[in-house]
Amino acid sequence: MDDLVFLQQWFSAHCDEDWEHGEGIKLISLDNPGWSLEVDLRGTGFEGRSMPRVKAERSETDWTQAWSDGRKFHAVGGAGNLVEVIGHFRAFVR
C-alpha cells in the first residue's frame, strides 16, 4: 500500500464523529515552496508519543523534517517531498 492510501485509511479509522471535528489532519502547502502535514494525536492511541526532530537536508529544494510533541505530529518538506512527508507519519505510527 502506498503512503497516500495509508494516510486515507488511518484517517478513516480514527473518525469517530468527534476527533475529525477537532483538529484531525491538516495538509497544506508552504510558500517556500513545500508541504506541511499536521496530525492531531489527541484521542488516538498515539497521544503522548513524542519524537525528536529528524532532518534530511539534501538540497535547497529536497528536504524534510518531522517531529512530535505528543499532542501533534508534524512533518514538513520541499515541494517534491510530499510522499516522504507522509512516509514520516507512517513510520511514526508503526
Rank of each mutant, 00 (worst) to 15 (best):
K72E: 13
Q65Y: 10
I86W: 01
Q8C: 15
R71W: 13
F11K: 11
E38P: 04
V93M: 00
S36N: 12
V85C: 05
S36M: 14
K26Y: 06
S29W: 08
W35S: 03
I28V: 15
L4S: 11
D3L: 04
F11G: 05
I86L: 11
P52D: 13
S68M: 02
D18T: 10
S50G: 15
Q8D: 15
E38Y: 02
G80D: 15
R53V: 08
G43S: 06
E20R: 07
D3S: 08
G70Q: 13
H74Q: 12
E23A: 13
T61F: 13
R49D: 02
R58Q: 06
G70R: 08
L7C: 05
F46R: 02
N32V: 12
F6C: 07
W63E: 07
N81C: 14
W67Y: 09
V76H: 07
I86M: 05
S59F: 08
S68Q: 07
F89I: 00
A75V: 02
L7G: 03
R49W: 01
G78M: 10
N81G: 03
V5Q: 14
G80C: 12
A79D: 15
V83N: 05
N32A: 10
V39M: 02
G87V: 00
K26R: 13
L7N: 04
W67E: 10
F92D: 00
E38Q: 14
G43R: 02
S50K: 15
M1R: 09
H21P: 04
T44V: 05
E38S: 11
K55H: 09
H14G: 05
V39A: 03
R90W: 01
M51K: 08
V83I: 04
T44H: 06
L4Q: 11
